[in-house]
Design a protein around this nucleic acid. Structure first.
Lengths: 153, 153
DNA sequence: CTCCTTGCAAATTGTTTGCATACCT
DNA sequence: AGGTATGCAAACAATTTGCAAGGAG
């Protein structure tokens, strides 16, 4: 029913905006959901959706991911490898705060999620100090992962 | 002499690696330095270097920026507008901790630097908790800037 | 004199767009 | 029916690469 919930959420939001509920859109969301942990490129999603629905076009996947992002149903990050990635955050029905960060290994490229939310205070501070209304944040740490450290001379 | 310092730093590091000190490399660094506040794309740098040195090729600028980044002489960020940007952080002779963050307006695209370093504690915490050795971090806040908020109905 | 580096152009790669057709509502 | 979405192919834009010629050590 977690499953069901985001699907319903998508349908609602589509209707609100006069957009249509299509097979493709549901499939893209479902793939994202079944891989909620991974950071998926459009190609990744395309490959998976194609298994069930080979007729889908890559362009549709791009369009749909963008749509999901705009509707706050998907999270978007860049891992500096030249492509945008999407993932489903732990969304609590309507609340769409994205609260996990990433540790990126400069050596092997591993991406380790790191859940923590110490940034709320900082956000409030920013709002007060600059008048900037914070909606979301993205925090990445670069360094060397445990494995790579182990391999070092 | 701040000026002089990074140039010397570059020369040193090039020699260490058996690489060569070229006019182009010095010029790219110098342009970055003279615009230390801006987040510059390769094209931006290319345009500026071209004024003094029209023969330079765009590919060289790309190669040089990458090099400076690898040598920790330049900082690299992505503002999600589809191109990588570089800037010179306030580097304190050798120490290359990059400690300023960015507020990115979802409406007008403005990028507001935000200096603050509350993340050291968090970094230590991560190292202890995960064994990941943190070298650097990148923090972006997305939201609506003051001006755009003002324009709202 | 020997590699490293450059400039140029061509090649790649991720992503977007135009358009006729197919599909929701 | 009527407008939205789709698939395909072509268009794009940022970045990379191959290679012959030039330049630093």
């Amino acid at each position: 029913m977690e499953q069901k919930k985001t699907e319903e959420l998508l349908k609602e939001r589509l209707k609100e905006k006069g957009l249509k509920v299509t097979h493709q859109r549901l499939l893209v969301l479902s793939v994202l959901e079944q891989n909620s942990g991974r950071h998926m490129t459009a190609e990744d999603v395309y490959a998976l959706v194609s298994q069930d629905y080979p007729e889908i076009g890559l362009a549709t996947v791009y369009r749909t991911l963008q749509l999901l992002y705009e509707m706050q149903l998907a999270d978007r990050i860049s891992l500096d490898d030249g492509c945008v990635r999407y993932e489903i955050g732990h969304l609590f029905a309507g609340e769409s705060k994205h609260n996990h960060h990433h540790l990126i290994c400069r050596r092997c490229g591993a991406v380790i999620p790191f859940g923590d939310d110490l940034l709320d205070d900082l956000e409030h501070h920013i709002e007060k100090a600059t008048g900037f209304h914070v909606l979301d944040h993205e925090l990445k740490f670069y360094g060397i992962c445990k494995q790579c450290l182990g391999k070092e001379k």
